[in-house]
Design a protein around this nucleic acid. Sequence first.
DNA 1: TTAAACCCTGACGTGACGTTAATGTCAAGG
DNA 2: CCTTGACATTAACGTCACGTCAGGGTTTAA
Lengths: 252, 252
Amino acid sequence: MFTVKQISKLAGVTPRTLHHYDEIGLLKPSRVGDNGYRYYGKESLLRLQQILFYRELDMPLDDIRKIIGRRDYDKLGALQSHKVALNKKVARLNRLIQTVDNTINHLQGDNIMSERELFKAFSEEEQEQYALEAEQLYDAATVRASNKKWKSYSAAKRESILAEGNTIYADMVAAMPSGVRSRAVQVIVERWHKHMEYFWTPKLEQLVGLANGYNDDPRFKANFDKIHPQLAEFMREAVQVYVANSRKSGSK
Amino acid sequence: MFTVKQISKLAGVTPRTLHHYDEIGLLKPSRVGDNGYRYYGKESLLRLQQILFYRELDMPLDDIRKIIGRRDYDKLGALQSHKVALNKKVARLNRLIQTVDNTINHLQGDNIMSERELFKAFSEEEQEQYALEAEQLYDAATVRASNKKWKSYSAAKRESILAEGNTIYADMVAAMPSGVRSRAVQVIVERWHKHMEYFWTPKLEQLVGLANGYNDDPRFKANFDKIHPQLAEFMREAVQVYVANSRKSGSK
DNA sequence: TTAAACCCTGACGTGACGTTAATGTCAAGG
DNA sequence: CCTTGACATTAACGTCACGTCAGGGTTTAA
């Protein structure tokens, strides 16, 4: 059993916040002493953690109460979606950072920025339009086929394939400054294209969908962010250029 | 010249917000028509962008006004620090994501979590306490010496040193799952120790300070986060173990 | 037994707008 | 010229998540 002060220290909130949460019925103490003191148990801790996650995503306390108050409330599912939401926040912040960079260059006269560009990272919108596309790409059949191919390799082979992948992404990060259209980057995209065939043999258009998936699908995005916060986004643009070019030269 | 509605669409704020900013003298229109209409010019856009960046970092509007109102206000410098602050936010979110993962495992019974762990990503604290130490480490003399040594290398040599560094950090990320005390990690720390001598020859204790610097100094931290969001923190712990062990075996 | 450190309940304050109301302005089409 | 609809204005009260007193009781360690 913890007192308000103890909880407040643990969770980084003030006692007043706990009073407030009690008042509005969001987090009631497990037990109230005869002296009126609030005592919280371990379940309260877990519930408070959930509340803080939702609050982190700017949800009104009233809505939070409604959600975690439902008797069929699914803790695990909620945590999964917290992760997705937090990843989106990270993506947004990364776009903001990109905008800061652009603005710095803009002020130094190195590039020009339209009015829209100045703010495009702030306004949400224009996200998720690729969601359907990605959904379609990662359908059950594709995933099954891809898994099968992967499992057919020896452990050593798998190691070396993963290593090759890491090298490609590392090279890509190194080449980022030269821009998505640069020869250097496009050569790496080609290596990446070849590399993908260890998993499945994508058609040219599917490459774009795959690169979109790197951005939209949290499973991938998180891993890419570890390498470089702008890598997924950069890859998407680079692959678009690559596919556009390949089509031109390939179809004549 | 833009009207309130136009600005609001561009920047993703409501007209009411612009009214409010006018009221409190944070962002006044470039011109007010005879009809009382507010008209904003391009300078206003840039100023609004700055305001939104500060707001993104949860700064009170009153403070924002004071800062950008100063006549020696440095736009570029501000943007630089926006970047640092945004990167800190990203790092925090990554820690939160890590906590979500841990909690998921915890609920599935795969690991146990202390009360502190449940919340450690929320509470800020335990950042920056090494600030002084780091300050001391990066004093002018050290930095000068380090720069001098670095400049004495040929361009090719520098390239290869940087590459070696990248390899070490990549290997470190790969070895993270085995824990800070594992043989694998400690061997890599030793390689890192050797590697550092290209820059200067740190005394054993200074290694700890250096690794702390990776966490505390935003210049380094941002770069480490690009490789892996927990790398800087992991290095700090690993180096502490390394130094403790070296002292034991070295001094007998 | 006394001080320090904790607890309680009101109740009002605050910051950044949202919302509503009542009213004026402008551009386009009939 | 007149209407209509989308814009603009000011004024003023509402909201949300607490912060901040004020006034008073309780617990613990010296």
